[in-house]
């Protein structure tokens, strides 16, 4: 197996999960209604748990312990796409990000369930069932609020237009695309993106929202290479604050 290629894939996936998980957790206590507070908190718990399992696979490939990987790196060592690190903003933005990201993620894990790298395939078979609930949740609210009233529709439309270039950054290709494909580990970012465009288009068509022409959008790349917005480092500082006080503490 091509270990550098697998590590590259695992890092970006785990970092996406950890960072978006952390962002989702910022809704705890602040959700617009109690059910949404619980939903974003639950999705945070799922995603952070999934990131830990992915970091564990990296650990088995020789990388440091999951906590060390999660809490001791700086922004330029993170490989999450920039979409995941953006502040939660208002609920409409968090909902749109959740919708765009989780559709991509479900497709990714569905594909990885057939990976020839068996430890990842096993984990993917498990995770895809969990992410399905995240996607169901996003679809329900996009349909509801995307057809509700002028304010909800215009808020979602603005957030959609703002988030889409970042969402295309999910599919920024890495140096190992060909190796991952030829070894049957992962079908590649393009394959995920094509399916993603199809699925989100189907959902958006059921609402009063309009999807811009993808060919006119400039994807926001860089996250996979450690180039981030000014929002990531403060997030990492906050997330690792307690850990850094005493990295050897037992919990």
């Amino acid at each position: 197996m091509n270990t550098p290629a697998i590590k590259d894939l695992l890092y970006k996936m785990a970092d996406d999960q950890l960072i978006l998980g952390h962002r989702n957790s910022e809704w705890t206590g602040f959700g617009p209604v109690l059910e949404e507070d619980i939903a974003f908190s639950s999705m945070a718990q799922d995603k952070i748990g999934q990131s830990q399992a992915l970091y564990q696979l990296l650990h088995e490939l020789g990388e440091a312990e999951p906590d060390t990987i999660a809490f001791t790196r700086n922004a330029e060592q993170f490989h999450n796409c920039q979409l995941t690190e953006l502040p939660i903003g208002e609920y409409d933005f968090s909902l749109i990000r959740h919708f765009l990201f989780d559709h991509a993620e479900l497709i990714r894990f569905e594909m990885l369930a057939n990976s020839r790298y068996e430890p990842l395939a096993q984990l993917a078979r498990k995770i895809k069932g969990e992410i399905k609930y995240h996607v169901m949740h996003a679809n329900t609210w996009i349909k509801q609020l995307g057809n509700a009233n002028e304010e909800s529709i215009s808020r979602l439309q603005n957030s959609l237009e703002y988030a889409l270039p970042y969402a295309l950054g999910i599919f920024e290709e890495g140096a190992h695309e060909e190796a991952l494909q030829s070894e049957g580990i992962f079908p590649g970012e393009k394959a995920v993106m094509e399916e993603w465009k199809k699925r989100i288009s189907e959902r958006i068509e059921q609402t009063a929202l309009r999807l811009p022409d993808f060919s006119q959008l400039q994807p926001v790349y860089g996250g996979r290479k450690g180039q981030h917005s000014e929002h990531l480092q403060p997030l990492l500082d906050e997330m690792s604050e307690v850990f850094r006080i005493d990295p050897t503490a037992e919990w």
């Binding site: 059910e35 619980i38 939903a39 639950s42 999705m43 718990q45 609930y133 169901m136 949740h137």
Partner: peptide, 13 residues
């Protein structure tokens, strides 16, 4: 179904 997320990860309301 009120919400697919509940007091623990494995429960819906």
């Amino acid at each position: 179904l009120k919400t697919p997320f509940g007091p623990t990860l494995c429960r819906s309301i």
